[in-house]
Amino acid sequence: MIAPLEAQTLMRVNADEFSFADILQMVTLTRTRFRIDVFAATGVMLGSVETQGGMVLKATHQNESGELAFYHLCNNSINAFFDSYTLKNDPTENPSQNETPLGSVVHLLLNALTQKEQANNMKSEVFVPIAKVEAAQPVEGTPQLEPSSPEKLQRDPAPAKSSYTPPQPSSASVETVTVNINVVYGLLALLALVFLALFSRNRR
């Protein structure tokens, strides 16, 4: 039987003092199990995260759970406040031994940042459809979202912004030119036929 986790030591922090990412990183200093509840400024609970020893064990956000919930909590916790608790349980019946972590705090935070950056790129280019298609392509050097693994901690945390290639003139504009030339050819052919018809009529 798994012993129930007992919540102890509440601490409340506002998002304008420390971000969700800040709190998550600070609690990597402890090896005890920690729970962070995220609330909107209205007091409505948005979700929660449980960590232990620098690993994220659980994340929930509204009806979601897992990595996706973690990313949504990271990106939707502005103007929020956080209640954090140390969770204690019977040392002989530690439930964490039966759990698989979602990944390390560092790795998941890096992924959340990458996701946010990609979303921002897409937003800023929403009025240029061709550029939007370019932004959705994997940019060389940018870490892609993959299932977590501790080995990936060594990779460069900064997405390679410099490797982003501005959108090149697209094939759509080339097609437009082709269509225009075809129209001109068509008109010329029509004119030639008219001339031919007139010429043959005059000869008769």
Binding site: T9, L29, T30, R31, T32, G53, M55, T86, E99, P101
Partner: peptide
């Protein structure tokens, strides 16, 4: 000294007493 554990040992801490937990002490 309190950092002397690897991420892969995340669940091997057992119960850390508050008086010896780095986070609690620094806070």
């Amino acid at each position: 000294k309190a950092l002397s554990w690897k991420l892969e040992e995340w669940n091997e801490g057992g119960i850390i007493l508050e008086e010896s937990d780095l986070f609690v002490i620094v806070r």
